[in-house]
Nucleic acid binder design. Structure first.
Lengths: 208, 208
DNA sequence: GTCTATAACTTGATAGAC
DNA sequence: GTCTATCAAGTTATAGAC
């Protein structure tokens, strides 16, 4: 909303960023307000000046994730190739690198919260769904760019949902096993599926 | 190990069962020892007689899930049909019913814990991986029963990993959206994949 | 094996000065 | 907007009687 100047981050931003990182690596319940205050270098009074409480801060975090989707997730992946289909696999490859970089402790921050938060956090659940919607829409758009290459019966919206599932399920198993192998297995299966859908009978490319 | 007689559950079993349910619906961090004691109808002293603490109780829960895999998950699903491929979809359909029955708060207890627990719970992470291994092995076995129907290049172990991913990712999105639709979308895509793999060009069956 | 009482600490949140 | 001090409740875990 406000123009992005190069000023140092506001106190509110510091709190959101600290909470974002800590919720990511420790979970929502596993992170205390004291943790967040310490990491942000901010005092209790300031937090409760900007937010009603921990849950309200969570909403700020989820809103921030929505705003950062293209800048941090979609654009860097799609910049790697102009082929709409390969953009999907470039996106998945970025999650692969994220997993390895964090030694399988990271993965997808939204997915983590999706399974941790319950009906007691109704507004948070809605924002999580909106984050998924944004991701899925970006993927569906690039599938639309390749529309002519798919058989007519293919439901690209449904396929985009499926791709999100493959990413999240692959991340989950990689984390559980502390190994990239299950993630790679899933991406290879998705590649086979695409090859079959696109009528490409050539041997599977080694990408993952 | 000990023969399963029809005696009332031991105090230890009561604790494990209470923790299993509460971890499922509230998460590990979201469940207090006091919650567990109250639900089990057991006093603090007994818990610490049987377990070193909360984390040790978690290990008991994950061990119990391993023991219950066939009895509670695999056998009921596979009893529904003798066709090896349809057994996969029967299994997925049972998760679908679980989601609807719990109004999208349930899903997969192992998946929930897989994303909540971090490297601070190394032994728990190992048991989660073993739970996934058991599920995937059961699915791979039924894929093996249909081995002749797949093209020779299909890696059935990898395909089983993929099926687990589809289940977990579908559950995650269904929970986030509070709707069965994303889960159904994923199962339909998996059905299309199977049809293509098996060379079945008939229109997709409506199952999910 | 089970009971009660409680220690030692952390939690989310607030009050009120500046 | 930011600070410190602090509250009331909840946290895991233990001690010691029975």
């Amino acid at each position: 909303m406000t123009p992005e100047t190069i000023t140092s981050p506001s106190t509110r931003d510091k709190l959101v960023e600290a909470a974002m990182e800590l919720f990511y690596f420790q979970g929502y319940e596993g992170t205390s307000i004291a943790d967040i205050l310490h990491r942000a270098g901010v005092n209790s009074g300031s937090l409760y000046y900007f937010f009603r409480g921990k849950e309200d801060l969570l909403l700020g975090v989820l809103q921030k994730y929505k705003e950062l989707l293209y800048q941090e997730v979609i654009d860097p992946a799609f910049a790697k190739t102009n082929d709409p289909i390969e953009r999907i696999f470039a996106l998945l490859d970025n999650y692969r690198h994220g997993l390895q970089f964090t030694h399988f402790t990271g993965g997808c921050p939204i997915g983590n919260l999706a399974l941790e938060l319950r009906e007691t956090h109704e507004e948070a659940r809605r924002l999580i769904a909106e984050n998924f919607d944004g991701w899925r829409d970006a993927v569906r758009k690039t599938l639309d760019d390749a529309a002519g290459r798919f058989p007519p019966h293919v439901d690209r919206e449904q396929l985009a949902t499926f791709i999100l599932t493959v990413m999240e399920g692959g991340v989950m198993q990689a984390r559980a096993h502390g190994s990239i192998e299950p993630f790679d297995a899933c991406v290879r299966q998705l590649r086979t599926y695409f090859n079959l859908l696109l009528g490409d009978q050539a041997p599977q490319k080694e990408r993952a």
